[in-house]
Design a protein around this nucleic acid. Structure first.
Lengths: 242, 242
DNA sequence: GGATATACCGAGTGCTATTCAATTAGCCTT
DNA sequence: AAGGCTAATTGAATAGCACTCGGTATATCC
């Protein structure tokens, strides 16, 4: 009956299309209802396949969730890299600010999702997969930090793992506080101080100390000089106008 | 048939005893199997009551879990206070070290439990209860920090919420890293550097600045003065133009 | 000691993830 | 193009769980 002329899908392409459909549907349903609240039947319906079919792609609901989470973390990694690349200035602290902003925002928007990444660990033996994807994500920070050290913007004796723990840990905690405390209208507004404080902390704790006080004072002198010049220009302008 | 002479339990005491039995059994089973893995029937069996009886004490499995978590966090708060009180020296940094050590250890030992505190939030509307108990726990840190400021050990311009986020956030993240990376033999060993780095961070970032920096401030004063002058000129000009 | 209220029980209910025997669809050989 | 073969798909059946409810035991009151 069916004409083969309409370029029927190959076996492979069909599988890939269905897998994507399942993953997309699953993600939507998980986000909407959480893990326990999500019905496998609803995922199947949205992906337009039979309920049993899901189980020929994934062992269980938990493993399906894991696949969704992998996709999620991979996306974050890619986006985080993109955000960093899009910062005009290539200094460490500007990029750190951009990364912190991005990360905090993600944390607040996907809080439940991220919690599930860790909460799911107990049920399933396939932990390592999720762990690797998480590692890839934090590696974005690691690269930034090491580059900052190479460029001489950060102290050589700074401890990477501590910096990483502070960065991601504090942001996660802050994100949870913001998410728990405020209504959705205020969420965006309250993010700025968190990010700024984080950058300030990194600047003061991991930023290079200027070689000597001499340099410090010379920098102050430079600023003072610039201000004086500005003041002079101002006077000139002022005079000309009168 | 039953003799009343054997000092039968009063109605109230019996209820309390059963409630405790349920809570203890539930805690054990939840720790052992996680939330989803825990069978209500097993909790009932261990508490030596009928399965249905549990539901005359708690609305649902989730609410029972919540009660267990409350007990858990209350215990932590009490123990944390005790740990702080037991430190011989009453200086801020020694107490901070003790609190960090205690907290990190708890995090590693009860990782799943703590994850559940946050993961459970979605399912149940009775969130606020858990939130209050959590607040009480972090208040231990807040009191310590404020006292440190009062005693002049910490900078007056330090931001409490940021310090809190860094303290609990970093430790939580570190704890998870330790828990995920290492086998149980190494867990204890790797805690020390985390705690020490945390204390060092607080010392350098929030500790009072040595008087020697007077020079710095005088330079700042100079700059500020120049800016003020410039600002005045600006105002004057501005006024003249209008 | 009987009436009444309260606590307790566990067999049933309803809902869901998961399985599996039957069916369909793509692919390959001739 | 037909037929056979394999892999993919299906949804009705299964199994396991949280939770309910009618009935029973137990304490309290008069």
């Amino acid at each position: 009956m069916a004409t083969k002329a309409v370029n029927p899908e190959t076996r492979r392409s069909k599988l890939e299309r269905k897998e994507r459909a399942i993953l997309d549907a699953a993600r939507a349903v998980f986000v909407e209802h959480g893990f326990d609240g999500a019905r496998v039947s609803e995922i199947a319906r949205r992906a337009q396949i039979g309920e049993g079919t899901i189980y020929s792609y994934y062992e269980s609901k938990a493993e399906l969730m894991l696949a969704v989470l992998q996709q999620f973390w991979d996306g974050l990694t890619r986006e985080a890299e993109a955000v960093m690349a899009s910062v005009a200035a290539d200094g460490f602290f500007d990029r750190l600010r951009a990364l912190a902003q991005y990360h905090l925002n993600i944390l607040i928007l996907n809080a439940d999702f991220i919690n599930l990444s860790f909460a799911l660990r107990r049920n399933n033996s396939e932990v390592s997969v999720s762990r690797d994807h998480l590692r890839q994500y934090v590696a974005v920070f690691d690269r930034l930090f090491l580059r900052g050290q190479d460029r001489g913007e950060l102290r050589q004796d700074a401890v990477l793992w501590q910096a990483r723990d502070i960065f991601y840990g504090s942001l996660e905690y802050s994100g949870r506080s913001i998410e728990m405390t405020l209504d959705s209208d205020h969420k965006v507004r309250e993010q700025a101080p968190v990010v700024e404080q984080m950058v300030a902390l990194f600047r003061s704790h991991y930023g290079v100390i200027d070689k000597a006080d001499a340099k410090d004072s010379s920098m102050f002198d430079q600023l003072a000089q610039k201000l004086d010049q500005l003041s002079d220009k101002f006077d000139a302008l002022s005079e000309r106008l009168s």
